[in-house]
């Protein structure tokens, strides 16, 4: 299974042979991977959630394509069915989506090539959500630097388009499964994030950040539920930087 070993460590000679378009196609082909399948199962659940809350097929598909962050979509539907005002709904979505800022900020230096234009990065940033982020962070190191933007364009755009279509199709067929199937499917996502993020680490700081994030989240969720993810990020980041300083001091 091609989930952690990726068979394309390119030598410089290969780079000249493989064009940008062929890397774009390699990115597109990631739609046939375990993480892409897991994300599709999550969107199967989302289609049912949208239909239960009176959001139409076209509206639900439009939400997936334009927002492209499952938590933000779920928050928005919650706000719609709760009768929130436009401003209230926008504030609720902002609190859920603000986490994308540090994620994108960490992703861009890994993805951009020496000549990548900012407008290209701004356009591609739309396709960065947790699954694509984890996939990119895990795989970029196997891809020549100046081909990463093409690769991610293929990966990100295909994931977004396919999942928008999955929502439309599942909504249309009004597919229903017994609850135990959904329960089993919903557990795939955290297990995929947990293992592939752990495996993507190039140094110990990523493991320290993960362990501190996992350990701090329940406490912070208890204290400040509205800002739990963002505060977990900053607190876990601070612990990690403390560790990095300590490890350097010991090595010196």
């Amino acid at each position: 299974m091609g989930d952690s070993e990726f068979p394309s460590s390119q030598t410089p000679a290969d780079d000249t042979v493989r064009t940008r378009f062929s890397w774009f196609l390699s990115g597109m082909a990631m739609i046939f991977s375990i993480p892409a399948f897991i994300l599709m199962t999550a969107h199967v659940g989302f289609a049912g959630f949208a239909s239960e809350n009176g959001v139409s097929l076209l509206q639900a598909t439009f939400m997936v394509a334009t927002i492209w962050a499952l938590p933000a979509n779920i928050v928005l539907i919650g706000a719609i069915s709760g009768g929130y005002s436009l401003i209230g709904a926008a504030v609720a979505v902002t609190l859920s989506s603000i986490r994308l800022m540090p994620m994108v900020a960490a992703f861009i230096p890994e993805m951009r090539g020496p000549k990548t234009r900012r407008i290209t990065l701004l356009l591609l940033a739309h396709f960065i959500a947790v699954t694509a982020w984890v996939m990119g962070m895990e795989r970029f190191r196997h891809i020549p630097r100046d081909m990463r933007v093409s690769y991610f364009a293929g990966l990100g755009i295909t994931l977004t388009v396919t999942n928008s279509l999955v929502v439309a199709l599942v909504y249309f067929l009004s597919t229903d499964f017994p609850p135990i199937v959904f329960a089993a499917l919903f557990f795939l996502t955290p297990m995929y994030f947990l293992t592939s993020l752990w495996g993507s680490a190039r140094d110990r700081s990523v493991h320290v950040a993960m362990v501190s994030g996992l350990a701090l989240f329940p406490l912070i969720h208890h204290l400040a539920p509205a800002y739990d993810l963002l505060l977990t990020g900053f607190a876990g980041g601070a612990v990690t930087m403390g560790y990095v300083r300590w490890a350097r001091g010991r090595a010196a």
Binding site: M103, W133, S205, V206, G236, M241
Partner: peptide, 10 residues
């Protein structure tokens, strides 16, 4: 580190 801790929170 911040982004990783945040995804761990997710």
């Amino acid at each position: 580190a911040v982004a990783t801790a945040l995804v761990a929170g997710v």
